[in-house]
Write a protein that binds this DNA or RNA. Structure first.
Length: 589
RNA sequence: GCGGGCGUAGCUUAGUGGUAAAGCUCCAGCCUUCCAAGCUGGCUAUGAGGGUUCGAUUCCCUUCGCCCGCUCCA
């Protein structure tokens, strides 16, 4: 995925973002804070439009998705069930010589003779360094190789012509304290918690630790039963949520791409397990080829649902101005998948700094709800009357086959989750019995997108520079943001051709008031008309509405019409004022 | 977290151990009949803290931030 990086373009974009008010550094006047960014007036509008379009396409335009708005701080056990407490806090240690980082529990245990040193002295300058250090010498290697590593260590700390001090040796068995590659001592294991920790209530002690959510998804799983029971939905259906999430990233980089506080748009789409679909419909439909599989069908299995959501999401991106040519689909290889995932597709965008993930669409099996069922003790099953009836009509052999498949899958999950084999088998058999009675834990397809990454993608995709030559032959660079009109922060600029003609100004203000209830419009009378167009080009405003003398009736046939000027090509057309709202609506909604 | 580079106005850059310069932007006024025109005037900066010095934007230290590489990325 390595690509040539274009820093110059990124720097121009960052500069424009600040200059025009798209993105500012958080806490700027105090020197900023690493990994946090604010949206200025134009950025806030852009982000709002993107979120509204997502919410609209995911919930309002569909019968089968409902919304949720959960808190950022939740019961800490949620993060134990999800696995975040464990996976976010692996102790890490670094090689003292090469700085290479290891997960403390994954270092290959080493045996041999450890050479300990209390410090070293520079023979020429006479400088001494009191810094304990050790090297592990594997069996059969000469002691000189251990000393050589130790010399490198002290030389790296600024000593010349090193003389080692306080050498002593010690037998070591199966130690994880040394780098298997060079024998160098590692730093002590240090916890690496990527979740932001806080305390609920005024007393900050370990009993009331809580975390800022590192993803919005878990709230959806935790509220699954409440939503199911109140929304009159049943699988296949989804719960959508937008909201802030927090990760204490090791290295925030690439402008807003990897921030510590960021916003997600996530859908958890719940489907019956394939065994239930087969019992109900007699078969499980699987993808017949690439592309959008069309309207959802009752016999779809997880693979078709997964493909469906990948294609739906691609359509969404196309609809807001990111063509397929700007995106890449990456199907994770089996060895890259999380253990609970059956398939994951990353939608990548070609950023100037490399091709990077915008959204992941994961088929997550029934892992998430199962985890919460186990950890909370509350049932996460769905009852399907139709399934219960259909099951009784199956051939006994078919019943056995489906129940076996379901039981095996449940057992695999339970064993991976750490249940002893015997208990897992027993529980899985019970789950299979429940399936026959119409109860199952839904499987999940999860399209999970980063809002701020998408905003950055839109910004970098929209950014354009054009060389223009004015009438004096002077070359100029015109900067413009070619946002899709649907996401553009300002939909139209409204300008009187001249500022010092009160009748033009009055009419222009009327037009502004006419448009204001429908669109974000910007009135500007300062400077030449060309300058005002150029200012709006940098803000990415797709249309300029200019009130001139024809509007006032200089040419009677043009009375009450305005010039509409197109951002991308400077084209102009004449539109009657009474048609303006409809004209703009057709192009910006 | 480690190593390297950088930090002067809103932006892009200049410069100096002794009054901080310019272009663009922005604001006000005049002018202007469709693409950054012109004239006049104006606002705004040495990232922060400490040290050396009579005096520091310049030298030193610390810190914060940005960029690059490494590392990490459930």
């Amino acid at each position: 995925m390595a690509e040539p990086k274009d820093n110059v373009v990124m720097e121009k974009i960052v500069s424009l973002c600040k200059r025009r008010g798209f993105v500012f550094q958080s806490s700027d006047i105090y020197g900023g804070i690493n990994g946090f960014w604010d949206y200025g007036p134009l950025g806030a509008e852009l982000k709002r439009h993107v979120k509204e379009l997502w919410w609209r396409s995911m919930t309002r335009m569909r019968d089968d998705v409902v919304g949720l708005e959960a808190t950022i701080i939740m019961h800490p056990r949620i993060w134990q069930a999800s696995g975040h407490v464990d996976t976010f806090s692996d102790p890490m240690c670094d090689c003292l010589l090469t700085r290479k980082r290891f997960r403390a529990d994954q270092v290959d245990p080493q045996s041999g003779l450890a050479y300990h040193y209390s410090g070293a002295r520079a023979t020429v300058a006479g400088r001494a360094l009191q810094a304990p250090y050790s090297v592990l010498l594997p069996p059969g290697k000469p002691p000189e190789s251990a000393r050589k590593v130790a010399l490198q260590f002290y030389q790296a700390r600024g000593l010349q012509n090193v003389e080692l001090q306080g050498e002593r040796t010690e037998k070591v068995e199966n130690s994880q304290r040394y780098n298997p590659e060079n024998g160098s001592l590692l730093t002590p294991p240090r916890p690496f918690n990527l979740m932001f920790k806080t305390y609920v209530g005024p007393v900050a002690d370990e009993d009331n630790v809580a975390y800022l959510r590192p993803e919005t998804a878990q709230a959806i799983f935790a509220q699954f039963k409440n939503v199911l029971e109140t929304s009159r939905q049943k699988p296949p259906f989804g719960i959508a949520q937008m909201g802030k999430a927090f990760r204490n990233e090791v290295t925030p980089r690439n402008f807003t791409f990897r921030s510590r506080e960021f916003e997600q748009m996530e859908l958890e789409f719940f489907i019956p397990p394939d065994e239930a679909v087969e019992a109900l419909r007699g078969r499980v439909a699987t993808p017949s080829g690439p592309g959008h599989p069309g309207e959802p069908q009752p016999d779809w299995g997880w693979q078709l649902w997964h493909q469906y959501w990948v294609e739906e999401r691609l359509r969404f991106y196309e609809g807001i101005g990111l063509p397929r040519t700007s995106l890449e689909e990456y199907w994770q290889k089996p060895e890259e998948l999380a253990h609970y995932a059956r398939a994951t597709v990353d939608l990548l965008f070609k950023f100037p700094f490399g091709t990077q993930e915008l959204e992941g669409i994961a088929a997550r099996s029934d892992f998430d709800l199962s985890q919460h069922q186990r950890c909370s003790g509350k049932s996460m099953t769905v009852f399907d009357e139709e399934l219960k009836t259909a099951w009784t009509k199956l051939e006994p052999a078919h019943q056995t086959e489906l129940a076996d498949r379901y039981r095996a899958a449940r057992s695999r999950y339970l064993q991976r989750a750490g249940e002893p084999v015997e208990a897992a088998e027993k529980q899985a058999a019970e789950d299979a019995t429940q399936l026959a009675r119409g109860y199952y834990i839904p499987h999940v397809i999860e399209p999970s997108a980063g809002v701020d990454r998408l905003i950055l993608a839109l910004l970098t995709h929209a950014f354009a520079e054009e060389e223009t030559t004015d009438e004096k032959g002077k070359k100029e660079t015109r900067t413009l943001m070619r946002f899709h009109p649907r996401v553009a922060p300002i939909k139209a600029g409204v300008f009187p051709l001249l500022k010092n003609k009160p009748e033009l100004v009055r009419k222009a203000r009327e037009v502004r008031e006419l448009l204001r209830p429908h669109f974000n419009v910007f009135y500007d009378e300062a400077g030449s008309i060309g300058r005002r167009y150029a200012r709006q080009d940098e803000a990415g405003t797709p249309f300029g509405v200019t009130i001139d003398f024809d509007t006032l009736g200089e040419k009677p046939e043009a009375l009450d019409t305005v010039t509409v000027r197109h951002r991308d090509d400077g084209r102009q057309e004449r539109v009657p004022i009474r048609d303006l709202v409809a004209w703009l609506t057709a192009r910006t909604v």
